[in-house]
Design a protein around this nucleic acid. Structure first.
Lengths: 106, 106
DNA sequence: ATTGGCTTTTAGTTGGCACTTACGCAAGCG
DNA sequence: CGCTTGCGTAAGTGCCAACTAAAAGCCAAT
């Protein structure tokens, strides 16, 4: 989950993900979309996305076709829904912090 | 939106957001929750969260009370739902890239 | 085998980010 | 007023992430 959010924090990686959202695309065509950075930079972005499971790679001859892994974004949605809504653990943690404070205090 | 994702990419900031999700909390109490970093570091995290509109600040005497801005997370959810699902713009962009390629290509 | 297109990888640079230490500043209290 | 409490800010450090340029890998066709 950490990897997912870190990967999406970069604007160009979001753009890449959008490009390969509905169809797979070869690396060169993805890179051509970006005029301000090198093909190498895009390749490295693709690696980050792949390691975060946000895209999958398929080889076809010398080309490499990338496609978005939409399931992973769905997981992020679920994360946003569930993570903070556990008020009980929050109260427990605050209580623990107060306890630490009390013992440490003077 | 960029600021929102960048802010959430940091684990400690997510933890802070979880702490102040359902109730407001003074800065010191938030900082006490983290034993491995300084109070100053937490203060800087709070500033990032505030600039991303993920938390709001309320002053009460010398204290500053923070509370999560749940609307902003809701916006992120909407973003995840809508941003990539516009296949038409994707096709347009790919066509443009191909056009650039054709002209540039000798 | 060698050439050539498609792509990743390596090495090196730079900018940014999280952190600590030290300081500053306002509000309440004796 | 002097002191303390609660908190942000400034300056400096170290690390990591994004980038470029150059080298290397992979695959197909010749």
């Amino acid at each position: 989950m950490d990897a997912t959010l870190k990967a999406l924090a970069e604007p160009r990686r979001r753009e890449i993900l959008r490009l390969v959202w509905s169809d797979e695309l070869p690396a060169t065509q993805i890179a051509d979309h970006f005029t301000e950075v090198t093909r190498s930079a895009i390749s490295q972005h693709l690696r980050v996305l792949k390691e975060a499971s946000l895209v999958s790679e398929r080889r076809d001859g010398t080309r490499r076709l990338y496609r978005a892994n939409t399931d992973e974004v769905a997981k992020l949605r679920a994360f946003l829904d569930d993570y903070w809504t556990s008020g009980l653990t929050r109260l427990r943690d605050v209580a623990e912090a107060a306890e630490r404070n009390r013992r440490a205090g003077h």
